[in-house]
Amino acid sequence: MSSRNGTHSGIVNVAILGCGRIAHHMAQTLQGMSRDERYSDLIRPYAVATRADESRARAFADQYGFPHAYGSYEDMLADPEIDLVYIATPHALHADQAIACMQAGKNVLVEKSFTANESQARRVLDVARKTGLTCTEAIWTRYMPSRQLVLDVLGSGEIGTPRQTYANLSYPVSGKARMTDPAMAGGALLDVGVYPINFIAMAFPDAGVERTISSCTLTDRGVDEQFSATFWLSNGVSATIDSSMVSVGSRQGVIQGDAGYLIVENINNPERIDVFDKDHRKVRSIDVPEQITGYEYQVVSAARAILDGRVECPEMPHEETLRIMRVMDSLRAQWGEVYPFER
């Protein structure tokens, strides 16, 4: 890879820290990018590391064509050829791992939720500023073309002045051990609830939250199982969200104006946007571009930031990551949900 001289020459070597389900999704993405002429001169799938299982790392690397596999994170961070590390571990581990990566000279793409709370996020971003390394949150919807498509509809005036919005993301994932483990910052909020919150923040980027009402059910281990919240925004919009880790949700995002409304099918990976008039007639459907998996956009943004010498990506600047963490902290405060490491 080129030095940080503001050019786009060179290929960014990407490593994955962790071998769980989401790591496989990223590996599939990187494999596809390496075979796609749009990305093959920018990205190289390079390495994967497990915490303490070299054979598992090697099997993962062989499956996706990564040339290097490491049986410990420390061994991976000692490799001088790695430019970008994608952190694919549970939320509670992100802060220390991102800091370790940057202290080893590696740029980081940190899976959402960026950290477990705002305090951890500030620690990570302080290190990014001190090291001058790229550090960005891998909340994929922020980097997708569908984000601008929604803003284009709102800007067109087709649905009039937005007054209400609703967003849901729910999956029955309580069977996964980390989802119910307080020590891993388990619960619906940080894993699935983060998407409806980001949906609202992307649709109304200049609006602050003036008031919030929320409620949740907690598991017997004290993590949120399902919740709902309504935010009153400074632009006059009321925004209601809900998420659950024990039900199948509609995954819809709805923005309602005084002249019509739009529906985003699957806010977690938008499939299309339908626009309706005030008489509920569908005016048009907007398809989103074909993609490899949808993860490629965040990888491209991080790679370009690295090559340009920027510490953050425009799609998810550090202040925005902190703002989302602050919203989630405030919801947990309403519910009395405290992770063991916060006590």
Rank of each mutant, 00 (worst) to 15 (best):
M76D: 03
G236Y: 11
G20N: 08
R310L: 14
R129E: 13
A183H: 13
D53V: 04
R251D: 12
A98C: 09
T217Y: 02
S215C: 07
S174H: 11
R211P: 00
Y261R: 15
H24K: 13
E54Q: 12
V209N: 01
P314C: 04
C135K: 00
A229I: 05
A69F: 02
A27D: 08
A23Q: 09
G132Q: 04
G105V: 12
A57Q: 02
I82F: 02
L169S: 10
L125D: 04
V110H: 05
F227P: 10
T217E: 13
Q97F: 15
Y261K: 15
G105A: 11
E118L: 07
A177D: 13
S156E: 10
K112F: 03
G309A: 04
R35E: 15
P145W: 10
S119G: 03
V194S: 03
L93A: 15
E296P: 00
G32P: 10
P172S: 04
A116P: 07
N13W: 00
F199A: 10
D126W: 02
A78V: 03
A185E: 06
Q252F: 08
G65K: 08
V14D: 02
S146Y: 07
G157A: 13
R147W: 09
I273N: 01
Q334I: 11
L151S: 14
T230D: 06
S247C: 11
R272Y: 11
Q256P: 07
Y46S: 05
V192C: 04
F199I: 03
P270L: 00
E296A: 01
L262M: 11
D152R: 07
F114S: 04
V108R: 00
T165A: 15
V327N: 00
I324D: 01
R35V: 10
E319P: 02
V108P: 08
R272N: 11
A167N: 09
A229V: 05
W335A: 09
G208T: 12
N269H: 11
V283T: 14
S174W: 09
R21P: 04
H24S: 13
I241V: 14
T136K: 00
P340D: 06
S9Q: 12
I273Q: 01
P182E: 06
H94W: 08
T50H: 03
A167Y: 05
R129H: 12
E118Q: 14
I139Q: 06
T321V: 15
L151A: 14
Q63L: 14
N107F: 08
E111N: 13
L322K: 03
G336P: 10
R51Y: 14
Q103W: 06
S285R: 11
Q164H: 12
S174R: 09
D277G: 04
T89A: 05
M316L: 12
R35L: 15
E158A: 15
A98W: 00
G10R: 01
D41T: 14
Q291N: 05
G309F: 03
M26Y: 15
T89N: 06
I241M: 11
K130R: 14
P317S: 00
S2A: 14
T50Y: 01
K130F: 06
V48Y: 04
G160D: 13
A69Q: 05
K112G: 06
L17T: 08
I324T: 06
T212D: 01
Q63M: 13
P270R: 01
T321P: 03
Y39T: 15
V124R: 00
F227N: 07
I306P: 06
E74C: 06
T219C: 04
L42R: 08
R178M: 10
A92Y: 02
L307A: 04
